[in-house]
Design a protein around this nucleic acid. Structure first.
Lengths: 249, 249
DNA sequence: CGCGAGGTTGATTTGTGTCAATGCACGTGG
DNA sequence: CCACGTGCATTGACACAAATCAACCTCGCG
């Protein structure tokens, strides 16, 4: 049961043991990719669907002047481009940040999965949570100061790594350079550095190599006004205005 | 054929005359709403699905300190909350900006629509375009300066109003206050005012009352680096790097 | 006719970007 | 085993875009 794909989908629908067997089968064969390698580029028609089983990948868009905006992060268990089939072509690129192992699902396999109503529901749940995450990122960039924005991203990643069993207590591996963080947050490398340092100095986060830990999760969540509702995890729905703040406790 | 809902969905799938008849039927009964009225609030479970037939509505999130971020705009023909059913509860609110007429689709009606494969495909197309739009907004906020960001939004709205037949040539009714524009762009009212004025002074846009017109669409698109690919309109796919820039010509 | 919402403007502050340099860890080749 | 190069983190001085604060204006409407 250490399959992050299955762990994630369990949150989207009630699966049977048979469902899990199917999912295990389709995600068992993986292809290794190096860090910073494109999986599919903007403008291409999607064919196989990509599923991250190990490592960290992202969606991004490049501007003519060379600027890059990362618009989504893919952790193990995340599907990259499931429904773009409907749209016909990619309006953005997908690439790895670290070395990854990806499963590739053929259109036939995808059809087989979506024919199963429980799995289909779980996959759509994933797509809609992706969209909700995008909305939250927009709020983050539009309304929060740089330090809070980074704190919010850290809260989100902690939750998502926990979801697939890849967090250890209050810590996880933040496998991104500050430049990549900057492209995610819409800030500059220099400013990300300063703000991360400020978060460390204030004791809200602790960094040892790539491992980032959050000594007081509630404090960090309150600092950046993090509310996990948008991740739509069945058991962590917070009572609005209640005490179980942030669903992180 | 002046039904914006049908006009929009035509872009997502090839519909038959029967399909159109069904869509016409479900969107014929509308409820009037005043300006600045909530349709559904964050935290509520969605029931009826809302469809804008007239007016302008939006998705938004409020922060504890009272700040608001508008994360989507709904023009006539847009569906507000179709698939949130899967998620169980709203992670954001939906409200009107101007007076609106909304059709309300019961769960049974929605089931009937999604049982039709062509309509189902068109509806999912709409959902995925919403997501692509969200990504583009993120790029907008993260990487573009305030004036370009506003220009980009204007380009997008022009395209989308044209799509449903509500633009007249190169102009449309921009029924938003500068405060609402500010909440959309993640800027302050004052700064929106100054940047809009700069756009007017440079001749890129012309404003008469609520009507905004774009004398040279290509110039505006180039100014803000607008590329309509993310709207996934079947016939306007631009050749990458080609001359039919922006799909606006 | 007066009020209020929304648009406009100026002075000033501040958060973030820019430019440039330094440090540090790591890997590689001589 | 050391010299060097490279990628990333860190820091400082300075510039600039956008926020803030505070008026004032204008127009439609009760």
């Amino acid at each position: 049961m250490d399959n992050p794909f299955i762990r994630k989908l369990e949150h989207g629908a009630k699966l049977t043991e048979e469902d899990r067997e199917v999912l295990r089968a389709v995600s068992s064969v993986t292809r290794p990719l190096h860090a910073r390698q494109d999986v599919i580029g903007e403008g291409e028609p999607p064919f196989d669907v990509h599923l991250v089983m190990e490592g960290l990948a992202c969606r991004y868009k490049l501007l003519p002047d060379g600027k890059r905006q990362i618009v989504a992060l893919f952790l193990p268990g995340d599907i990259c481009d499931l429904h773009v089939q409907i749209l016909g072509w990619m309006d953005h690129s997908i690439g790895t940040l670290t070395a990854c192992r990806l499963a590739e699902l053929s259109p036939a396999t995808v059809d087989r999965l979506t024919a199963n109503p429980r799995i289909n529901r779980a996959l759509w749940w994933g797509t809609l949570v992706d969209e909700a995450t995008l909305r939250e990122w927009l709020v983050n960039m539009g309304q929060r100061s740089a330090d809070r924005q980074l704190a919010h991203l850290i809260c989100e990643l902690l939750m998502r790594y926990r979801l697939v069993g890849l967090a250890e207590g209050n810590s996880f591996m933040l496998a991104m350079t500050q430049e990549e963080l900057a492209d995610t947050a819409g800030l500059t490398t220099v400013h990300v550095n300063r703000m991360m340092r400020a978060l460390r100095k204030s004791g809200l986060i602790v960094i040892e190599g790539q491992r980032i830990s959050v000594p007081d999760v509630l404090a960090l969540a309150q600092f950046c006004d993090f509310d996990a509702n948008y991740l739509h995890l069945a058991n962590t729905r917070t009572n609005w205005g209640g005490a179980a703040e942030a669903g992180l406790a």
